[in-house]
């Protein structure tokens, strides 16, 4: 067995399955630390693919899979840096995370996100890179970005459009509301629903089934049915960077980050 233990995520490979664990408190917010460890993981993937057939990503935190982008870190960066430099950093961050997520999306391994609780924003975008999402009954899915004046920036819209029907894509994105697992399965976002706390067990059972099938055929089928929407992903980065330059976005981020209400600020 080989593995790696990081501050935000760790992985091990056992029985032909790469298991990635997210464990960054408070809820696996995706900031610079998370990204650098994700980059380490995707750099290691070609070597790991030699001895694996499946990839599972899950969280050990009670709050859920991931609350998405680290808005506090983002806001601090905007607040303390001259605007053009802050926007350059935002662009660089998005380009790096797109590269990491595109690599996960296109790996020949069969990939499974085993999720529970909060699966929001960038966390949902990470799950969307996977071939299957297996969710327990506590899972809740949301793209709240429009409520802050931005759009999902880690590949969310292109991947959602690829995978789901227009009605649900627009509802999820344009209202910013959250879906429970029943709705998510009806929409085609979730392939299997597990009992509370059982998503990882179900994902492991699925991975065991994958091992019985020919790997090269599975990789060929995946490449055929799950093309990475590179053109739209590149467009997304441009739109996101334009939106971040708007003062309204910076004001919304400030209000969100500095709010001490139990009900965090969101319109």
């Amino acid at each position: 067995m080989t593995g790696h233990s990081g501050k935000a995520l760790s992985w091990k490979i056992a029985g032909g399955v790469i298991e990635v664990t997210l464990h960054r408190e408070p809820c696996n917010e995706i900031g610079t630390l998370f990204l650098s460890e994700l980059e380490q993981l995707v750099s290691a993937l070609p070597g790991l693919e030699e001895s694996a057939h499946a990839f599972i990503i899950h969280s050990t935190l009670g709050c859920g899979f991931s609350a998405g982008g680290d808005l506090r870190e983002l806001y601090e960066g905007i607040k303390t840096t001259e605007q053009s430099a802050a926007l350059a950093e935002i662009r660089d961050f998005h380009q790096r995370i797109h590269h990491a997520m595109n690599t996960l999306d296109s790996t020949p391994l069969t990939t499974i996100a085993a999720v529970h609780g909060i699966v929001f924003g960038g966390g949902l975008e990470l799950a969307l890179t996977c071939d299957m999402i297996i969710a327990d009954k506590t899972a809740r899915f949301c793209f709240p970005e429009l409520r802050l004046g931005i759009i999902p920036g880690f590949g969310g819209i292109p991947r959602l459009k690829r995978d789901l029907g227009n009605a649900v894509v627009r509802d999820l994105l344009l209202t910013g509301r959250s879906f429970n697992v029943t709705k998510a399965q009806q929409a085609g976002l979730v392939s299997q629903v597990a009992g509370e706390g059982q998503a990882l067990r179900v994902a492991r059972a699925t991975a065991a089934q994958l091992a019985k099938l020919d790997r090269r055929t599975a990789a060929t089928a995946k490449k055929f049915m799950k093309p990475v929407p590179y053109d739209e992903l590149r467009q997304e980065i441009e739109i996101v960077c334009e939106l971040y330059a708007r003062p309204q976005v910076q004001a919304a981020l400030k209000k969100f980050v500095e709010s001490t209400d139990a009900q965090s600020y969101l319109p």
Binding site: N180, V181, A262
Partner: peptide
């Protein structure tokens, strides 16, 4: 509880009552 925990309560309520309750209705 905070807003994240309130969402987990909402999930349980939706399952129990078999309804869909958009969270913006609870703002």
């Amino acid at each position: 509880i905070d807003s994240m925990q309130a969402l987990s309560l909402l999930t349980r309520l939706e399952q129990h009552f078999n309804v869909e309750l958009p969270d913006y209705e609870l703002q």
